[in-house]
Design a protein around this nucleic acid. Structure first.
Lengths: 219, 219
DNA sequence: ACCTGAACACCGTTCAAGT
DNA sequence: ACCTGAACACCGTTCAAGT
């Protein structure tokens, strides 16, 4: 990968450049690929220089995730009906995490993260038109957001497992298979769902979850 | 803290002992307090010995979380109506994470984790009695579980912030306050909810979320 | 078979010294 | 004011050597 622009030769290093370089590394190599040393190398500087532009690694990851979510939610959904708009926002988040799992991991690492608040806002913006009473809108938006965060973290973790596991593909991890096959009497529901667990489509499962919650928040 | 039993003097180190010691450290000092060195010190052995009983740190954390969730869900809820039972299971999980935030962080780190499957099973076990059609039960259980995982991760992260931030108490972090106060035009919903964000009760918010989802999965 | 603990290959972060 | 990069204080994990 070449540097994106020529600004570096005159020694001007900016916060945006640092974050962009971090995103590039994260998208190429995942979370484990991003260290202050690899990042400094890409920016042709020393690791200490990065601290002039971000407070620490947590700050860097939060800023990177915010850029990704902003980009994923930049499509205008104003012409959609409120329930379709909420579904669209949720699926936009799902798709960016499916493509870049590190975003999903990061979303639930810090609370009150800009990226998380942006999702919360975009969901909430459609509740009035959906007919949700004013006093219920805060809980409704937080319910949808928490569902998205939980599903995002699971999806990110599942993809991470895929990535370095290679051949197991759609199979559950060994630990889960063990859990399913032990205790046949004490977990009848899990036994009954074993087929769905191994064969379901993650995106369809996510979409169905949003639909159920929408039915519920509508009252 | 003294060792829990006298078994160690005769050199018998078991997987259960390793996991119990790890849980003790996690509950006392949080995730950052648990290293193979501190754990080995508590077990009066070398760090390498631990690898005879757990595969790696990920395996150790998953096993520790499973013990905590099993204990939190060991209360029998069979006498409750199905919706009350689901609410009780969810609040049991919330409360254990409120008391021991590391459990919430761990739950969404690995997919198909025994602890997560246990929650999924306990939720799902009540869906038949709730009148959810067979074909919708998988999605219903996964929706509730994903909501719980998302809320758990947020709650855990918020408590972690509390712990080392000290005085900020019920205040949002500086980053979130900045996000709320900038872009007043582009995030009207967030602006409108600023008061709720700083003053809401986390447990009540969680409980309201469960209620909304229950209304939705009932169809 | 299990323990021991030094060693390996890393981390994030700091800070004196430069420009 | 910002960069540089060595140094600090750690990590998880491995593995020869012991018992």
């Amino acid at each position: 990968m070449e540097k994106k622009d020529g600004k570096r030769r005159d020694k001007a290093l900016s916060r945006d450049q640092v974050i962009s370089a971090a995103i590039a590394i994260l998208n190429e190599s995942g979370e484990s690929g991003l260290t202050f040393r690899t990042l400094a190398q890409r920016l042709v500087t020393g690791p200490g220089a990065i601290y002039n532009h971000v407070r620490n690694k947590e700050d860097l990851l939060a800023a990177a995730a915010d850029v990704m979510i902003q980009s994923a939610l930049s499509v205008n959904r104003d012409e959609l009906a409120p329930d379709a708009a909420i579904r669209a926002v949720a699926l936009d988040v799902f798709d960016i995490i499916d493509a870049h799992p590190w975003v999903g991991t990061e979303l639930s690492r810090a609370p009150w993260q800009p990226a998380m608040l942006l999702i919360f806002d975009r969901i909430g913006a459609n509740l009035q038109a959906l007919g949700v009473p004013d006093r219920a809108q805060f809980h409704a938006a937080s319910t949808v957001t928490n569902f998205i965060l939980g599903a995002a973290a699971q999806q990110a973790a599942a993809i991470r497992l895929h990535a370095d596991g290679a051949q197991r593909a759609t199979l559950l991890s060994a630990a889960a298979r063990a859990a399913i096959h032990q205790d046949k009497r004490s977990s009848p529901f899990l036994q009954r769902m074993a087929g769905n667990l191994t064969e379901h489509d993650d995106r369809e499962q996510f979409s169905a979850g949003i639909d159920m919650i929408l039915r519920g928040i509508r009252g």
